[in-house]
Simulated assay, not measured.
Amino acid sequence: MSAEVSLQLNPTLSHTLCYLGLGGNLGHPMALFDEVIDYFRAHSCAKAVRESLRFESAPVDATGPNYVNSVLELMWQGNAEQLLHTCMAIESQLGRVRTTRNAPRPIDVDVLLFGQETVNTSQLTVPHPRMHLRRFVLEPLLQLNPEIEIPGLGPARNHLPGTLDQIVKAI
């Protein structure tokens, strides 16, 4: 993949533990997930990339085919906005065209958590504003880190019971 965001590795900067949500319901999202993972594993600003199990879930507030979802854990050297721009470049390279909100799409790469930081800009809100309401986010997130806390909302595991009416299945 040739999605490039101009970032240089800076040995004086530390890495931040980040979580990304992957989703897609058009084409072959599982193959696209593999490409996203390969991209981050090769990226000079990312290291220690791990993926949760993959889950299938129905679309939320939309129609269309079921989604495939997972969560990536990685260490990122750079700021949250740089990570967002990298995610958007990957999406674009893999065929994502932004149309209407919640429209079906081949790939979605969302910044869920960026360490314990909170970010609220016109382009990015971290923690992701609906992550604690989505079982397809909480289950894979908790699989990777059962003790993870959502800044301002507390332990992620405390939010899972409120989502158990949402059907997700591991695939």
Rank of each mutant, 00 (worst) to 15 (best):
H15E: 09
A58L: 05
P59V: 00
M131L: 15
D38R: 15
M30R: 10
A58R: 06
N25I: 05
A46F: 08
T16F: 14
D61T: 04
Q143Y: 15
A3I: 00
F33L: 04
T121I: 06
P59E: 05
P106W: 10
P106I: 03
V36Q: 09
R130S: 04
T118F: 01
G115C: 13
D34Y: 05
V119E: 13
N69R: 12
V111S: 12
A31W: 14
W76E: 10
R50T: 04
L74M: 11
C87S: 04
Y67F: 15
H132D: 10
P104G: 03
S6L: 01
Q123N: 09
Q116V: 04
N102I: 05
T86N: 01
E91H: 04
L144C: 14
N66G: 11
L72G: 13
S92N: 02
V49R: 05
T100C: 07
H85I: 02
N79T: 07
D34F: 03
H132L: 07
L84Y: 13
I107H: 12
P11A: 03
I107N: 14
S122D: 15
V36F: 10
T86W: 02
M88T: 02
P146V: 06
E51N: 08
Y39G: 03
K47L: 13
E56S: 11
Q77K: 06
L13P: 11
R96E: 03
S44M: 12
Q8C: 02
S70H: 14
E35K: 12
S92H: 01
G95W: 01
Q123E: 12
A48R: 13
A42N: 06
R41W: 09
M1Q: 06
M30W: 10
Q8P: 01
N120M: 11
Q82G: 10
C18E: 14
L94A: 11
N10V: 03
V71F: 15
F33Y: 06
E4M: 03
L144W: 13
P59S: 07
V119I: 15
E73L: 15
L113E: 12
P106R: 08
S52F: 12
F40M: 05
F114D: 10
A3C: 03
L72F: 11
A48F: 09
I37Q: 06
